[in-house]
Design a protein around this nucleic acid. Structure first.
Lengths: 208, 208
DNA sequence: TCAGCTACCAAACGATTGTTCACACACTTG
DNA sequence: CAAGTGTGTGAACAATCGTTTGGTAGCTGA
């Protein structure tokens, strides 16, 4: 028996310089598949190919590996997350330093709650590159450092902290991650409202 | 070609009433396999069979399903976690209510750090049974309720809280879970020392 | 017109998985 | 000793997967 029907029936072939077009279509399909599945282990080459409507082999023209596809996805999604946090920060009154911390964390949580599959993947693989020096690198640590800077700003603006700025950032970030992870695990109480309140409580706690 | 060599060469067959023996051997092998893998998606029927040294089909004499095997594992591990937390609590001075909270959380984190595969599985599937009433049930919620009781005891003993007792328990539990999850994701900084300090900081924050 | 390149695909290979089914052993009971 | 039951096996089925190989269809530049 042949290998099974893996492809959708019809599809207009890409034109000459447009090979890149399929690459982003593949990434988009992978992204959507990941959203539907909610877990990265179902993110298969063949599934993505089905989503785009192409043959599985065609993916190998654009990505050498399944791992390369995943890396491409990760890069794209981390960029999206950073951008969301940044615009949230920019839409605040620059003087309201604590409000800016809250806004960034709310953006972070909103992304995480809205895209469980992406988020899980990002936190499993987002801290690659162990970091030559003491601290690990990776896109995830950039997020944390952004938060550290925000808390430092708060301290400089006169908002007294009960722990050092870096520690406060760690506590808030780790707590937010914990809540997100629980929301993802538990089918009930998926309200984004709860998580906002939780993060606000957490932020309030680190200030005197 | 035959289906491959799935079994270890020799093995003494169980005697009459000892069918149950293989059942626990299977659970033990599954537990160890889960420890080695660190993730539940590699926990296969055939892998467990290889671990015990039996044929894959033999597992179906003791578990109807792969899902049933996983349920069996979960039950066993949740019992272990509860017992660890309880004995940690009992080894404290009963008067030192805050110390008892700390001890229970340290036990929780120690288990989680030592058994990443089990912990992940327990948090993915530990909140089944959506709960007929308002709150979800499941063995995980029992742990949280234990913690709520501990914090309530603190409040009654005169330790003033900055948030209600239930909220304090949530914050500490969620924060601990977040730290555990991050330790599992990040290869570096796996120190159990860090997590103890983190939990202690968190507990300190919820008191005035 | 026609070689050459881009873009893609059908088919297959080898591996793994959960699950089933008929069978064989060992021991107990009649 | 014979029947029956507990206990485990060998072989196979159907499904899925990642990846490779050898193409083909169509556009492009000479």
């Amino acid at each position: 028996m042949p290998d099974e029907v893996d492809i959708a029936p019809q599809r207009t072939r890409n034109r000459w310089g447009e090979g890149e077009r399929l690459r982003v279509e593949i990434l988009d399909a992978a992204s959507q598949l990941l959203s539907e599945l909610g877990a990265a282990d179902g993110l298969t080459i063949r599934g993505v190919a089905r989503g785009v409507g192409i043959a599985p082999a065609s993916i190998y023209r654009h990505f050498t590996d399944r791992a390369a596809l995943v890396r491409g996805l990760l890069e794209h999604e981390f960029a999206r997350l950073r951008s969301l946090m940044l615009t949230a920060d920019e839409h605040c009154d620059p003087e309201d330093v604590v409000g800016r911390v809250r806004a960034q964390m709310h953006a972070y949580c909103a992304f995480a709650v809205a895209h469980p599959g992406h988020y899980r993947l990002m936190l499993s693989n987002g801290a690659s590159r162990p970091g030559p020096e003491e601290r690990p690198e990776g896109p995830l640590m950039e997020v944390v450092e952004t938060l550290v800077a925000a808390f430092t700003r708060c301290a400089e603006a006169g908002h007294e902290l009960r722990v050092p700025g870096r520690r406060a950032a760690e506590i808030v970030f780790v707590g937010a991650h914990g809540h997100v992870a629980l929301v993802h695990s538990l089918p009930s109480r998926t309200g984004a409202q709860n998580i906002k309140a939780f993060v606000d409580d957490l932020i309030a706690l680190v200030f005197v």
